[in-house]
Amino acid sequence: MSLAAEAFVSQIAAAEPWPENAMLYQPLREDQILLSDCASSLAVQAYLRMLGLPVRVHCRANAEYMSPSGKVPFIHVGNQVVSELGPIVQFTRAKGHSLSDGLDDVQRAEMKAYMELVNNMLLTAELYIQWCDENTAAEITRPRYSSPYSWPLNHILAYQKQWEVRRKMNAIGWAGKSLEQVYEDVSQCCQALSQRLGTQPFFFNKQPTELDALVFGHLFTILTTRLTTDELSEKVKSYSNLLSFCRRIEQTYFESQDRDSQSGASDYSKGPSLM
């Protein structure tokens, strides 16, 4: 997300309405996409559905290399390309679609803080489990990540990516953590989210915000993805209000909309549903 481009985008974006043929790109759903990418992609889809903006999901083996920031997912709207949830939220706001306009200043500060909590702990934990737990990396992550490529490129790319992620963990002080500690962190994060949610339907009462989309994306993906062990999803499952929160969003924004829409938009979730 280059900033100059972003400023440019926000200027001209306001003039154009949301087109019918907006597209969202992500890696191949069946064979390639990883837990963390899938979660981010689902978060963006949930966000756009909450706004009622139509988007068609396209799976591309080279989505990561098509994206302007090197991260998936990204959306292609009109003649503009925007990647990741944060910039996409800004982009839609420039077009006049926003979920968080009803919040006051303190609530908006809290919303941003919780979004960073999810990015900082859940996303990092997903990356850690994918790439730094050797079992998961060998059995799931490396084969999936490199599935579109042939020998020897598949090994080179997978190990390169793994090395990069491990160095990142080093830099942020996660390298010394054991898998147990990471699960503990996930649990702590879920507990914080669960506390914040309480008995409300959404994090800020009746209206969904981008925070709800982000949390849903991550938790739903964790719940419906099979890893080598199901310890990660067990951590989430112990918070019943988060479970019903995921179910509620799935029902409201994915199932009811899919019933009356065409096939293209229905292919959202890679795992089984929560029902």
């Binding site: 941003k112 919780y114 960073e116 909590l117 914080a192 506390q195 914040r196």
Partner: peptide
């Protein structure tokens, strides 16, 4: 309170990320 503890975690993340 538990909710304030949750807020602490969230704002510390905000500091670290932003």
């Amino acid at each position: 309170s538990a909710k304030e503890g949750a807020d602490t975690l969230a704002f510390v993340s905000l500091l670290e990320e932003k």
